[in-house]
Each structure stands twice: as structure tokens, then as C-alpha cells.
């Protein structure tokens, strides 16, 4: 006798992935970050009329050398596996290149509340202006300057705010 199992859809996978956070920015999910590029699921026939349910998730790295990729890959695997799939495959590829423009508006506002200035929109190549006039996440002044394009993680730059005289980090436009 077969047990009736609730049909799990791709939407369920997307919802489950909302609970997987970026380890470097624990308030933002991998979906909001734009790291997950594709989700697919279905059933494959295995022996004697039995079927096995599979899920495939594709992700793309923010920075190619990002050390958090391995952790995120494992967390994604665990979250999807918990839904009840027999087979889960998580692939990292660059078929879709990550750009900071892939971050959702919610992710950008969460980032600012977290104390990191969100990246400017990258509709063209990087320009000096994108690194200029960045709003301070503490006092919201735009009287700030780039101190170094390299911060505590690959995706962050270091800035200084002349208005509140504090340093802060900026998520780099990429």
C-alpha cells in the first residue's frame, strides 16, 4: 500500500530556501541575495513501478573565491532534503553570472538595517560614481568616502562617514 504524500512543488523549494541565510550576512536569505538561479523537481522511475522524487538547485557564486559557497551549498542541500526528496542535487555554476543587481530590494534594505550600505545599481560597468555618495547606514548622510575597496569579506568595501565620523562597510557593486 502506498502512503499518500503531499505533492511537493518548486514553490515549496523556493519557500524552504528562504530559510537558508548567507553566513556572511545572517539576515538575508540565499534567495534574496540572488544566489539561487534555478530550481527544478520531479519524479524519476526506479525499479518495479516505484518512483523517486528529485530536486535540483542551481546556485551561482557572488565572488568567484567566496569562501562561504561551500557552507551555503550544504545548507541548501539540507533544507531541500528536509522537504522529503529522495534525491537532492545542488550545483554551482556560472551560467547565470551573479551581479549585485540580482539582490532584491528587500535584501538591500535589510542590508542597510544590518549596518552595511547596499550596492548601487550596476546598469553599466563599474564607475567611480558608484563608489561615491554612498549613504551612511548609521546617519543616512551621503557625505562619505571610500577608504578601501577591500573590507572584512570579499564583497565589502570600507568607507568613512564625515557626518557621524564613523567607519562603515559597503557591499560592493559587482
Amino acid at each position: 500500500m502506498q502512503t499518500a504524500i503531499k505533492h511537493i512543488t518548486d514553490t515549496d523549494i523556493w519557500v524552504a530556501l528562504e530559510s537558508v541565510k548567507d553566513p556572511e550576512i545572517p539576515v538575508i536569505s540565499v534567495v534574496e541575495m540572488g544566489i539561487v538561479t534555478k530550481v527544478a523537481s520531479g519524479e524519476s522511475q526506479v525499479a518495479s513501478g516505484q518512483s523517486s522524487r528529485y530536486a535540483r538547485v542551481t546556485m551561482t557564486p557572488t565572488f568567484v573565491g567566496c569562501p562561504a559557497i561551500g557552507v551555503m551549498k550544504k545548507d541548501i542541500y539540507d533544507a531541500v532534503k528536509k522537504l522529503g526528496f529522495e534525491e537532492v542535487e545542488v550545483t554551482v555554476d556560472m551560467d547565470t553570472a551573479w551581479s549585485s543587481d540580482r539582490m532584491t530590494p528587500e535584501a538591500k534594505s535589510k542590508l542597510e538595517k544590518f549596518g552595511i550600505a547596499p550596492p548601487a545599481v550596476m546598469d553599466s560597468d563599474l564607475t567611480e560614481e558608484m563608489l561615491d555618495k554612498v549613504r551612511c547606514p548609521h546617519c543616512h548622510s551621503t557625505d562619505t568616502t571610500l577608504r578601501s575597496a577591500f573590507g572584512s569579506t570579499l564583497c565589502r568595501a570600507i568607507r568613512f562617514c564625515f557626518s557621524c565620523k564613523q567607519g562603515f562597510e559597503q557591499f560592493k557593486p559587482l
Binding site: 568567484v64 577591500f150 573590507g151 570600507i158
Partner: peptide
């Protein structure tokens, strides 16, 4: 800051 810059660039390159 230069310490961070060179180690970040190193991490990028090795990636």
C-alpha cells in the same frame, strides 16, 4: 587596510 587589500586580492586570485 593594505593588509586586508592584499589578502582579499589573494583570495580572489586563488578563487
Amino acid at each position: 587596510e593594505e593588509d586586508l587589500a592584499f589578502s582579499s586580492m589573494a583570495q580572489d586570485k586563488v578563487g
